[in-house]
């Protein structure tokens, strides 16, 4: 069977490399470490402000703050991309509202792809790109990339408004 998973040790190695590049680029990714004595205790976060436009009605636009989390999911043994979104007053944007603003996923089965799951480290509900699709993407990169986490992220980030600078890919 072809291997399409990543060990937690490798995940930590890959996100450390990712973080080094981010620091050089002033790209604002931050390492979060949970004190608890568990193996899955590290994840990266980044806040990014986006002007969301409703594709159906261009006049409808909101300034939204995304807080992205790059986390390891132990049961799937793959990285997952999760995020929260809020308006300028701090109130949360719901998944349904975000779907209305997201034309990138319109062609996909959004309800399967982007859903709400529990954060693998913080155990709180958070919007998540479902890990079941991650295998397919990861499988190829595991053979070819020096940093499969970055390669995978460069594919999925565009679906959820995350800007990933090209510089990251040079390390793959």
């Amino acid at each position: 069977m072809e291997n399409s998973t990543i060990s937690i040790q490798d995940f930590h190695k890959y996100i450390n490399a990712f973080l080094t590049i981010s620091n050089d680029l002033l790209d604002e990714w931050k390492l979060n470490t949970i004190d608890q004595n568990i193996e899955n205790n590290k994840f990266l976060t980044k806040k990014q402000v986006v002007l969301l436009r409703n594709p159906a009605d261009p006049d409808l636009q909101i300034i939204a703050t995304f807080e992205y989390h790059l986390v390891y999911n132990i049961s799937y043994a793959v990285p997952v991309l999760c995020f929260n979104i809020w308006r300028q007053d701090g109130s949360r944007i719901t998944l349904e509202e975000y779907w209305n603003y997201n034309k990138n996923l319109h062609d996909y089965n959004m309800h399967d792809t982007l859903t709400q799951m529990d954060h693998p480290v913080l155990n709180k509900p958070i919007f998540t790109l479902h890990p079941c699709k991650t295998y397919e993407i990861l499988k190829e990169f595991l053979k070819t990339s020096k940093n499969p986490v970055i390669s995978w992220l460069s594919v999925v980030s565009q679906f959820v408004h995350l800007d990933l600078l090209e510089e990251y890919l040079k390390s793959c």
Partner: peptide, 20 residues
């Protein structure tokens, strides 16, 4: 006015997850 009930009230947040 920031109405943070849906964002911060744990009971409401649980209900939103159930509804989802």
């Amino acid at each position: 006015l920031a109405n943070m009930k849906n964002t911060l009230d744990p009971a409401v947040m649980a209900e939103i997850s159930n509804d989802l």
